[in-house]
Design a protein around this nucleic acid. Structure first.
Lengths: 304, 304
DNA sequence: TCACCTAATACCTTCGCGGTATGATGAACA
DNA sequence: TGTTCATCATACCGCGAAGGTATTAGGTGA
């Protein structure tokens, strides 16, 4: 059996006339006759009774008509769905995110993507940087978000945004009264650092910034993530350098102050990472969407 | 797209290797490669990534594999069902029955058929003889059961069985004490006749039998069917000639007595009727089944 | 009885499927 | 690093089957 034969059969059944059906199928009558005969032969079942007025479906033919229509619809649907999947508009996308950047930028990026491609099932996984790289290599995720990545041959990374650094200060601290702080305010308070995970990380960044300004901060505590860091600030353990997006954390008793001298290097990147050899359409569409919304957010941020 | 291509695609997807798939499909590798390429081209979607170790499904390919399997299963099912319908093993059969013969023979015939062909949906319609013929001509039924049919050019009829006639007598009637009666007992009692519908009918039959024996019975009442007739016997209106199968009606106060002189013509036929030009398999199987069980019942009746 | 509709048949041409032979390419291994 | 082995892709050929034209067969209705 052949899908073409199904199409022919449906046409003949609907027209109840081979000649008209042939016209509708843009072909001549004899080959159509033969195809119908072959179909009947292959099924070993009479589908039509030939009358002088045309072709009349038998009971078996009526049943087969329903089945044939169903099959044809299914094929069309399969074609359409496969094409959409091939364009990255349908399917599943496993995305890894990390603790603190989930706070602001990433949810917006993902939300935009989901609005644009509602038939892509986005599954989020929280992972550390090292876990993300391992998961990418094992194909458990397609894309990850992270900061401060060392270059790797098989993993490509793309900077989505850079964020300014702010200082989280306890409201009881006199520093909190100022609109902005010099960077060396860090030298005068115990500092809470995060995360305590794989290097290079945000800790190194902060220490390097201090070193560049000629002091070594007093480290009050190293913690796992921004949320914990801010919590310790609220408890009066010290101050904590956080990226802009952490300000979404409206923790009572904590103020976020910009650095008055606004050093150009006091920024941190937000990157997305993926396999260098992954050319899947779903990744392609996701990256395109992320780049677009990142540019928009960036523009908005600069504009504001 | 082509069902053959679906088969090829499934094989390649399952083997993850064109060469092995070709072996499984009993063909060589190059045409299979080409068919897969054509399928991808037609769908405008990459279904596989080619690796030095073979063919690996893309996400779109994985989706299409599921769809393809589904479609193939549906096609197989459609084929199988259509074939069964073509053999008269699946479908719908509209059967007309009439009032009194429903009592015994016909339910057995239909029950046998339904046991043998459980996937045929038998729909019963109660109709008079005239209605049956009209319904046959309008294709509203496929087969009918009736008695005493005048021959018609477009309707074929087949005698399924003949039944002996019995006399239904009120138990208070002295006649009821006898084991059997002479036919002219009818001359000595008021007679209830049925049915009162279209001629020729059972009424004519009884009157003709009387006439052949030189008497005209006193007609107490003409009624529509055997059930009513027997009810009137129970009420003492008179006697009533009924076919054998009416004895299934175990009406209190009524005895069914055979005719002692057992006239060979005191029998009535039970026929089934159908369109002469109907060669549908479902009718064919039904008629075969009816003939078989009628022969069995007949044998059993004679044996007993 | 004839005209007209229907489907079926005969015969031809062409397209495409499948076959064989060969090429291109990356992986594994010495 | 070169060699070998596997993979899939390409080139080209022959044949079968699909579709086309012309015609026949058969039943209906005027």
């Amino acid at each position: 059996m052949d899908i073409r034969q199904l199409r022919y059969f449906i046409a003949v059944a609907e027209e109840a006339n081979i000649g008209r059906a042939a016209t509708r199928l843009h072909m001549s009558q004899p080959p159509l006759t033969r195809q119908i005969q072959q179909l009947e032969e292959e099924l070993d079942t009479q589908l039509f009774v030939r009358t002088p007025r045309g072709m009349e479906l038998t009971q078996a033919g009526t049943l087969f008509l329903a089945e044939a229509r169903n099959i044809r619809a299914l094929i069309e649907q399969a074609t359409e769905r496969t094409q959409r999947a091939g364009q990255g508009r349908l399917g599943r996308l496993d995305v890894a995110i990390f603790g603190s950047a989930i706070l602001d930028r990433i949810p917006k990026l993902i939300l935009n993507f989901r609005n644009e491609y509602p038939d892509v099932n986005v599954v989020l996984h929280t992972m550390t940087k090292a876990e993300q790289i391992a998961a990418l290599r094992q194909n458990r995720i397609t894309v990850g978000f992270n900061r401060m990545l060392a270059p790797l041959p098989d993993i490509r990374s793309e900077v989505i945004a850079t964020e300014a650094l702010l200082l989280a200060v306890n409201l009881n601290d006199p520093l909190a009264a100022q609109p902005a702080l010099p960077f060396d305010a860090l030298a005068r308070r115990p500092v809470i650092l995060f995360p305590s995970g794989a290097r290079p990380n945000f800790v190194d960044k902060v220490l390097a910034l201090c070193e560049a300004r000629g002091f070594i901060p007093e480290v009050a505590q190293e913690v796992g993530d921004a949320v914990t860091g801010v919590a310790l600030v609220a408890s009066g353990f010290g101050v904590c350098v956080v990226p802009e997006s952490a300000t979404t954390l409206q923790y009572p008793g904590v103020a976020y102050l910009p650095f008055a001298d606004a050093p150009a290097d006091a920024r941190v990147d937000l990157s997305c990472i993926y396999r260098a050899d992954d050319h899947s359409p779903i990744l392609t569409t996701f990256l395109a969407s992320v780049r677009k919304s990142a540019a928009l957010q960036d523009g908005a941020a600069r504009g504001a």
